[in-house]
Computed example of a mutant assay.
Amino acid sequence: MINQEILFLSILTSSLMCLLFLLLLYLIIRKSKEIKTRREIESYKNKINNQIFSIIAQGQVFRGMGCETAIKQRAMEELLSRYVKILEGEEEKKRLSDLATHCLQGYYQKRLKSKRWSYRMNALYHIEDFHMTKLLNEVVLLSKKKKLSHQEMIHVLRILASFQFKDLLDLLLNHYHYLSEYENRGILMRLNQDLFDQFVLSFHKSTPPLQFAILDVISLNKAIKYRVFTENIYLTYKGEVKLRALKALSEIGYVRNIEPYLQLLYSPNWQERMVAAKLIGSVKEEKGIPRLIELLHDQVWWVRSQAGQSISQFPNGKAILQSVLETSKDAFARDMAWDWLHKGV
């Protein structure tokens, strides 16, 4: 009985050793192939790098530049990825895009149809980086797949925005109305003015997250063109939309009539007091200075800080803050005045 157990354990041990040996052998072979592949990629990159530079920087004709093998495709992809990060000129970017389309269009078409998520995502990132607009139809087809992951779908929509896809408004209003404010903003930031105007015109039938994103884009771009629209939104809406519109106006730095906004400095809502204080500083409305001084004593730190910043934007702002520092009996107000007196010093 004992001999049988020893024999069984010996066979089991030998089997495990064989499996481990086979696994080690597999890993060695795989690593060797990876090293060989990497060497071939680097060798081809070194071979074509000067030619790629001449094509992008000088407009040299790229006839005969082929990427018929996986090694050459990866080498080209890595080189173009490096160049796209440092290019600034529009002509150079256009040449890089044309070269990427010439050499890698078929490669990415196959990757977009792959069952592997990583292949599809990698293709999407490079299609956007290289601005390969000729793959727009393939990206649109991908957006219609039912099993598309959320991350893929967001990236697809960003690419469609970057490529100025004319039906993007319909997609966001009727098919992807559940997107978050952050996701919508990342998409809208890529639009040109004509397409963004479509979203502005459709503001009233948009979801709240999309409305927030529209106002945030106006705010981030300080887009004075939309000042009248933003003021109308402020007057028409309530709650968070109204507050976002007020924030956008404070970034634009101009309103038709300051009087209604001066009243907001007395709002029971601290967010409204804060953003109104920002607006007064942006437009440099001297009528608001006495109330801004009072807001240096506000119980909410954010309001006090914004009041101090707004005061500092006036020509005599430092003198006003110095006076508060020397005369106020409120320690919080004095601290805030001191902070803004020494900002950037």
Rank of each mutant, 00 (worst) to 15 (best):
V140I: 15
K318V: 09
R304C: 06
N137V: 14
K242W: 00
P208I: 00
R244C: 03
R38N: 14
T327R: 15
E78M: 08
S323W: 01
I252M: 11
L220V: 10
C103F: 02
E5T: 08
K287H: 05
M132Q: 03
E152H: 05
L79N: 01
Y226K: 00
E34A: 02
F163C: 12
E42C: 02
V345M: 11
I6G: 08
G106I: 04
W117Q: 13
I127G: 10
L160N: 06
Q60T: 15
S114A: 07
Y234F: 12
V217M: 00
N192G: 13
I218S: 01
F212K: 02
K329I: 02
N174R: 15
Q263C: 14
E42V: 02
L249C: 03
A57Y: 14
H102C: 00
P209I: 09
E88S: 15
I214E: 06
S149N: 03
K238M: 10
D167P: 09
K222R: 15
I311R: 02
A213V: 00
L321S: 06
V217T: 01
E259P: 04
M1D: 15
D167H: 12
S15D: 07
K110V: 10
V345C: 10
R30Q: 13
N316E: 10
K110G: 05
P260A: 04
E181I: 02
E152M: 11
Y26S: 12
K278W: 08
S97M: 06
H131Y: 13
L169F: 10
H177S: 15
R30H: 09
E294C: 03
E231Q: 10
I6H: 07
S143K: 05
S219R: 10
L148A: 09
Y178K: 09
F130A: 05
Y26H: 13
G344A: 07
P268R: 11
L172D: 09
R227D: 05
E91A: 12
S162W: 06
I127T: 08
L168P: 03
V156R: 01
L7G: 01
T327Y: 12
I41D: 00
R82T: 15
I233E: 03
F203V: 01
E326N: 15
V200S: 07
M1L: 13
K33C: 00
E251T: 08
Q58D: 15
E40D: 05
K318Y: 11
S310C: 08
L112T: 05
V300Q: 12
F53W: 10
L19F: 14
H126T: 03
I224L: 05
N184M: 04
